[in-house]
Amino acid sequence: MIRTLASALALYSIWLLLSGMFVPFLLAAGFCCAIAIKLFSRRLNAIAEETEVLELNWVKLVAYYPWLIKETVLAAWDVSKRILNPRLPISPALVEFAPSQKTDLGLVIHANSITLTPGTISVEVEHGRFLVHALTEEGALSLAGSEMDRRCAELEVV
């Protein structure tokens, strides 16, 4: 019940943010919509009944994303230089390695970060096995036991 109310409130705040008009009719309409969406999604069983999904080290997560953006910018710059180089100096590689995360959420954050960084794309994601396509051989070799791996493992609450 508390979870239902909390998510309805979250939906309502998204409504307020997107509408930006604070007249009584729209405020009431938004409230009704939030409740209706909650009822519909309950009827559809669209929301999984897992409660411990978002157990994360939030302090480290706040520090993680700026670091990830910095890495993304550096990688994108490197890939752009390779694209614009007339000789096209690429050596694509497909590597398999074992990530050190234990929880699903940690694995998802790690795989998402790998794909977000230009030059590497996670192709297959399982417990204890990532299959990654990399644009360069060096990029592929630096994946196993990388700083990203360590930082994602630190995000988890075991």
Partner: peptide, 15 residues
Amino acid sequence: DFYTRMQAASVTETL
């Protein structure tokens, strides 16, 4: 090839 094209497209999508 397709996979390397994806890497290039991710530059557009991120930076």
